[in-house]
Every structure is written in structure tokens, then in C-alpha cells.
């Protein structure tokens, strides 16, 4: 089953979202597509043990990296 999350580009640094997707890549297959206003992540083949928190954790990581990048 696929799960999708949309990150608003004006709120999340695209590199941060990419990096977060990479960091969680061992737990699911994560496709990243860059839209004009948002970045869509589609996660499939999610490790069942973490399926209930994967996208939430990934979103936290993307937020932290975005904040960090603003220095």
C-alpha cells in the first residue's frame, strides 16, 4: 500500500526533504517528485514494523533539516 505526503516548498527546503527521504530509504521505497508548489513523497514497500510512524518521523526529520539549513 502506498502512502503519500506533500511538503510545501515555501516551508520545507527541497534538499531537506530529499535528504530525509534518503535517510529513511532503508525502511521503504520512497519516490520524490518535485512540483511547482510542493514536493510529493510516495512511500511503498514500507517495513511493517515502522509503517505506523514512518512518514511522521520522516516529516520531523525534514523539518529539523529545514530549520538547520536556515542557520
Amino acid at each position: 500500500m502506498a502512502e503519500t505526503l506533500h511538503f510545501t516548498r515555501s516551508l520545507y527546503a527541497p534538499e531537506a526533504v530529499q535528504e530525509a527521504a534518503r535517510a529513511f530509504g532503508h525502511l521503504a521505497t520512497i519516490d520524490v517528485s518535485q512540483g511547482e508548489d510542493d514536493i510529493a513523497l510516495v512511500a511503498t514497500d514500507i517495513d511493517p514494523e515502522v509503517a505506523h510512524v514512518l512518514l511522521d518521523e520522516l516529516a520531523n526529520h525534514a523539518l529539523v533539516l529545514t530549520v538547520q539549513a536556515r542557520g
Binding site: H6, T8, Y12, D56, E57, A59, N60, L63, T66, V67
Partner: peptide, 18 residues
Amino acid sequence: IYGAAYLFVDRAYVFLAR
């Protein structure tokens, strides 16, 4: 907003939208 949101990542899943 970022500064406040950052402080909650230990307790909550934080998500921003527009």
C-alpha cells in the same frame, strides 16, 4: 514558527502546511 516547532520534535510529530 520554525523555532517553536523545532522544540516539539521530541514529543510530537510536527508538520507544517500552507
